[in-house]
Computed example of a mutant assay.
Amino acid sequence: MRIGIVSPVVTKVPGVHSTWERSAGIEELGRIAEVADSLGFHHLTCSEHVAVPTDIAEQRGGTYWDPLATFGYLAARTTRIRLATRVLVVGYHHPLEIAKRYGTLDQVSGGRLTLGLGIGSLREEFELLGAQFDGRGARADDAIAALRAALSQPEPEYHGEHYDFSGFLVDPHAVQPRVPLWIGGRTPRSLRRALSYGDGWVPFGIPTDRLAEMVTAANPPAGFEIVLPAGSTLDPIGSPEAGERVLRRARDAGATLVGTGITATSTDHYCEQLAALRQLAEKIDGPWECCDE
C-alpha cells in the first residue's frame, strides 16, 4: 500500500483546510513537494474548478489552483513523485486539448503524469463554459476512450460517437507509453467506467464498508489501482494510533493507494508530519524503497 498526498494550499475547502494555508503560496507548496518527493510518497494532487458560484463556494470552497500551472512548477522542484490531477473534469475539454497540454506536462516532468478524471457535477460551471451537462456520462465515456487513444501518440486517431479525429499532429505528447488514467466517482457506474477505460478508481463520499463490498464484487485485475481516501486528515505525530487505524482500514478495504490530507500548523510542521507519516506507513507495510514501488 502506497500513500499519496492531497496537496495543501491548492484548495481551500471550508472546515477542511488549515489556518496556515491561508497565507501560504507556491514557495511553501514547493518546499512541501520537495520533502514529499525525498521521502518517497507516491503522488501529489491538484483539482480542477474554473469558476465556482459564490453561494456554492460557501460549501465547496472557491480556491482551486489550476493543475497544469501548479504541476509545471512542482515538476521543476521534484524528481520522482507523481503529479496526479484529482480530478480533471473531462467535459470541460476536448480530448486532444488534454492530450496536448498534459502530454507536455508529462514531457516536462519526465513521465510522472497521472490523469485523474471526473465526470463533473456542477451544472453552473458546465453552463458557464458552454459544456453540455445533460448526457455528460456518455460523453465522458467517449472522451476517456478518445483520450486513451490519443495520449502518447504523435498522430492520434479515434472515431467515436461524440469525438472523431484523424490527420492531426499532436507534438509534444506524453512520453509514458501508457499514462495512468484514474476515474473518480461515488457510484458503481464510476467503478465500471474505471474498469472499462482506466487504470484505477478514485472514489469519494462512500463509507469504508461499502467501498470494501464494491471492490470485492468488482474483482479488479492485477495492477488496477484502488485509490481510497483516508477519510480524515491524519496527525501522525499527535495521534499515531488513530493514523494507523485509518491506514489499516483503507488497506483492508482493498486500497492499493491511500490519498490523505495532513493536519499541520505551519509549513515546517507539515514537513515533520510527512516524515512521521512515512514511519507510520512503514510500520504497517515495511520499508519503502521508491515512490513507484
Rank of each mutant, 00 (worst) to 15 (best):
W182L: 15
Q132M: 04
R82E: 08
R178M: 06
G61L: 05
A99M: 13
K100P: 00
I119D: 00
P172G: 10
A51G: 03
T63V: 15
L128A: 13
L68T: 02
F165H: 05
A146S: 07
H49I: 10
V87Y: 01
L129I: 06
G160P: 01
Q153R: 14
E155A: 14
F168Q: 12
A145L: 10
Y73P: 05
G137E: 00
T85R: 08
A131I: 11
A99R: 09
L181I: 15
Y92V: 12
A99Q: 13
L74A: 11
S166W: 08
Y158G: 01
A75V: 05
E157Q: 14
L191D: 06
P95N: 09
A194K: 02
G91Y: 03
A131Y: 11
Q176C: 10
L83G: 07
I56F: 06
G61Q: 06
D164G: 00
L105M: 10
A174P: 03
L122S: 02
A99K: 09
S109H: 03
L83H: 08
A75C: 05
V87T: 10
R60A: 12
S152K: 08
S121K: 00
H173T: 15
R82I: 01
T54A: 02
Y158M: 01
G111C: 06
F133L: 06
L151I: 14
Y102H: 05
A140R: 01
L181C: 06
G160Q: 01
P67R: 11
R112G: 07
G120M: 04
A150Q: 04
L129T: 06
P95I: 09
E127F: 07
A84G: 00
I56K: 08
H93Y: 15
H49A: 06
Q132T: 14
R112N: 08
V90A: 15
A131G: 11
H49V: 10
A146C: 12
A131F: 12
T70Q: 13
G103V: 07
V50K: 09
H93F: 15
P156W: 08
P177M: 05
A51Y: 11
G91H: 04
V175I: 15
V87S: 02
E97L: 11
R80Q: 10
F133P: 05
L191S: 08
H173W: 07
S166T: 13
V87D: 00
I56D: 09
T70W: 13
S121D: 09
L115N: 03
H94I: 01
A174H: 03
F168S: 13
E161Y: 00
D55Y: 13
L68R: 01
L88H: 03
G184F: 02
F126I: 09
S121E: 05
H173F: 10
K100R: 14
W182A: 09
F71Y: 01
L115W: 04
G72M: 10
R60W: 09
L169N: 07
R193D: 02
T78V: 08
S190F: 04
E124S: 12
Q107C: 09
R148K: 07
V170S: 14
R189A: 15
F133Q: 06
A146V: 00
R80G: 05
